[in-house]
Simulated assay, not measured.
Amino acid sequence: MALSYAIYDVFTDRQLEGNPLAVVFGADWLDDEVMQAIAQEFNLSETVFIRRPGGAAHTAKLRIFTPSQELPFAGHPTVGAAIAIAEAQHGATEEGIDLVQVLEEKVGPVRCAVRLKPGTASFAEFDLPRKSARIDARFDRQAIA
Score class of each variant (00 low, 15 high):
92 A>K: 11
135 I>K: 09
88 A>E: 11
108 G>H: 08
33 E>W: 02
140 D>M: 01
132 S>L: 11
86 A>N: 04
145 A>P: 01
40 Q>I: 04
140 D>I: 02
32 D>I: 12
99 L>K: 13
103 L>V: 09
44 L>F: 08
91 G>L: 04
93 T>K: 13
12 T>G: 05
38 I>N: 01
66 T>N: 06
53 P>I: 00
83 I>M: 13
115 R>M: 08
27 A>H: 01
114 V>R: 00
6 A>Y: 07
139 F>Y: 12
25 F>E: 05
3 L>Q: 08
65 F>V: 05
36 Q>D: 07
86 A>Y: 08
84 A>N: 06
21 L>T: 09
70 E>P: 03
129 P>M: 02
144 I>W: 12
30 L>Q: 12
140 D>K: 06
66 T>R: 01
97 I>W: 07
98 D>L: 13
126 F>N: 05
103 L>C: 08
120 T>G: 02
74 A>C: 05
62 L>K: 05
96 G>D: 06
51 R>I: 03
85 I>W: 09
136 D>N: 11
142 Q>N: 06
92 A>S: 13
137 A>D: 06
92 A>H: 10
106 K>A: 15
70 E>L: 03
54 G>E: 12
137 A>V: 13
87 E>G: 05
123 F>P: 00
7 I>F: 04
129 P>L: 03
93 T>C: 13
42 F>A: 01
139 F>T: 05
36 Q>V: 05
55 G>K: 15
44 L>G: 02
55 G>E: 14
50 I>M: 02
104 E>R: 03
93 T>E: 07
119 G>Y: 11
18 G>Q: 03
37 A>V: 06
42 F>R: 01
67 P>H: 02
125 E>A: 09
141 R>A: 13
37 A>W: 02
96 G>S: 14
56 A>R: 14
90 H>W: 13
66 T>L: 05
17 E>I: 03
141 R>K: 08
110 V>S: 06
135 I>P: 03
104 E>C: 00
112 C>H: 03
40 Q>H: 09
22 A>T: 04
101 Q>V: 09
60 A>S: 11
107 V>R: 09
26 G>A: 12
96 G>F: 06
129 P>T: 04
138 R>W: 14
110 V>C: 08
79 V>K: 07
115 R>D: 03
91 G>C: 04
59 T>V: 09
22 A>C: 06
23 V>A: 02
40 Q>M: 10
27 A>F: 03
32 D>P: 03
139 F>S: 00
